[in-house]
Write a protein that binds this DNA or RNA. Sequence first.
DNA 1: AAAAAAATTGTAAACGGTTACATTTTCAAA
DNA 2: TTTGAAAATGTAACCGTTTACAATTTTTTT
Lengths: 352, 352
Amino acid sequence: MPKEKEVTIYDIASALNISIATVSRALKNDPVVSKRTKKKIFDLAAKMGYRTNHFARNLRNQTTNTIGIIVHELSSNFITSVLAGVEKVTTEAGYDLIIAHSSESFSKEIANAKNLFDKRVDGLIASLSFDTKNLDHYKPFKEKNVPVIFFDRVEQDGKNTVVVIDNDKCGYQATEHLIQQGCKRIVHITSSLKRNVYAQRFNGYKEALSENGIPYDENLLIVHDLSESAAIESAMQMLKMNPLPDGVFITNDFVAAVVMRTLKENNIKIPEDMAIVGFNNDAICTLVEPALSTINYPGIDVGEVAARNLVNHLKGIGNIQNTNTIIIRSNLIIRNSSLKSEIIEKGKKKLN
Amino acid sequence: MPKEKEVTIYDIASALNISIATVSRALKNDPVVSKRTKKKIFDLAAKMGYRTNHFARNLRNQTTNTIGIIVHELSSNFITSVLAGVEKVTTEAGYDLIIAHSSESFSKEIANAKNLFDKRVDGLIASLSFDTKNLDHYKPFKEKNVPVIFFDRVEQDGKNTVVVIDNDKCGYQATEHLIQQGCKRIVHITSSLKRNVYAQRFNGYKEALSENGIPYDENLLIVHDLSESAAIESAMQMLKMNPLPDGVFITNDFVAAVVMRTLKENNIKIPEDMAIVGFNNDAICTLVEPALSTINYPGIDVGEVAARNLVNHLKGIGNIQNTNTIIIRSNLIIRNSSLKSEIIEKGKKKLN
DNA sequence: AAAAAAATTGTAAACGGTTACATTTTCAAA
DNA sequence: TTTGAAAATGTAACCGTTTACAATTTTTTT
């Protein structure tokens, strides 16, 4: 299976008896080339099946035309939609995308960063893994002036450009909503509080409690990873509480769905006995029963905004150095898993 | 923000007062270089922050070290797990991966194929979009001897290497199971019968019916796309049937979940009134109520096998020319959405 | 110690583009 | 027709590797 020889600008040039410089310029649509020769060149290029050699071009241009993205998992609804948003923008802008995932491991994230650095991506978009301890592995990018934008799981030390939502507010809104539904003992199931997103949602949760005169009870905080087994455990933990909680704010829809299932299996009525609010607004929300209230966290927007800012920076339009934090709109979506008040209303009606 | 100059083998060579040839060889760990000089070179390279220029290398080597993959959607559970499988193998083997998605559009698939061809991927993995009419856009790859492996949605004309499951058998098993549960009027909700996967599952469905003496009724066949709205429509269509069906085999878990929700909203009891079997074994299956019976279609295995075969072919181990069809194991998973017989048993017990 | 063989290193030509600078062609103005 | 500027094209160096082949150094053999 010998590789066929590729057509190069040399072949086109000699076939037309012109110089490679003209061919090169024509193929880039340089206005300096006359329309006549341009047409000849384009036609022949098409006929001969010419394809530009990106390696030769990039070698000469000292640019890779590639953007890297580091995520913690592919099998997450949120991440997938971020990727879709990023892909849309980068493709439009003519960049290649290299996707790397860390499987929530610090060491893999470091390896990925090193790999993308060695591949010389023009820019990087990254979300931190679960147990990422520091950002040293992104230093080489800074040193070589390769722009990096973080999203979702980030380090908000003001030194980096980050695309996030107002997690504080989201945590606040979710909790406040549960309180408004009459919940008094509200559990919060979340993940490592070392990660900004979870820490901030937790803060919002505490603020909402305190502003509504409910004392924070640390026994109602459950910290776990985001796996199915952890979710089941969390639910069992809730069931052992005495008195039972009457509401729960969960930092992830999948976990929320599993918790809800487990609670129902144990004869808890949702939302009557316990109201539930999840996070992300995955497709799953409207498929479980009752439908899951949640925070709408539009991954596609996150991806688009992050990619757009990076691309603009690379093209010299705008500069991410000036931008520290970009906050994406998010909002609470109320569905039946937390709608106690209607039930209360119904109950009242029955009494009449 | 001037780009810092990169360290090249020239820099290392002149610093050590040796030739670039030796440096180049040392960095590739060529045994011809003495251990002493090798060590000097490695040490200095590390100290100077040398990174190999992949463009120069690929230009010289006439190889891209890149594999392309064309899928129809990113936001599909199945596709994501295929990607995970592919990614695992290609990364291990040292290949880059370029992911392109067609959003189920023929023209986009053509554009993606052209793009990946122009990027000169060493090999291609592809699943056809919904309305792909022909495979002409893959011809350039064949002509240049670039290996292509198709998976899931494929053209089984014997001309291509494909990785699939036995969709016939799956359709048969799903339907047979419903029949065993006592279903007599079994609806089949699927997608375009022009695509092999759906056509074959449909075949299996018909075979199971006929072998069990149930005449095929074309009114029970519903063909739609795989969107939520289409799923709702399909369910409404079922509800209008007279007499009502008592079972349904659906070609996709998400659609099955939406159908089930819609049926339940219309006071249909699952599985008592209608038993449901989906397809894929997405995470969603155990989160809906009742849990969804389904066909387990392990995307990660599909991805791994496809990538492994491609990589081996590229490395000269094995040859996909000799392999036409690779069939991945799949199996029926029975959950409560189709378990009528237990109910029947319970009913009998009550009578006693 | 000289000669031959083996091990190591070096030279220089690719790979296929881009582009500064030089040269030629074209065409309007003098 | 000559001149000069503008338009078009050409020349050649460069981007950073790899590798055939040549040259040198080291080791072994005689």
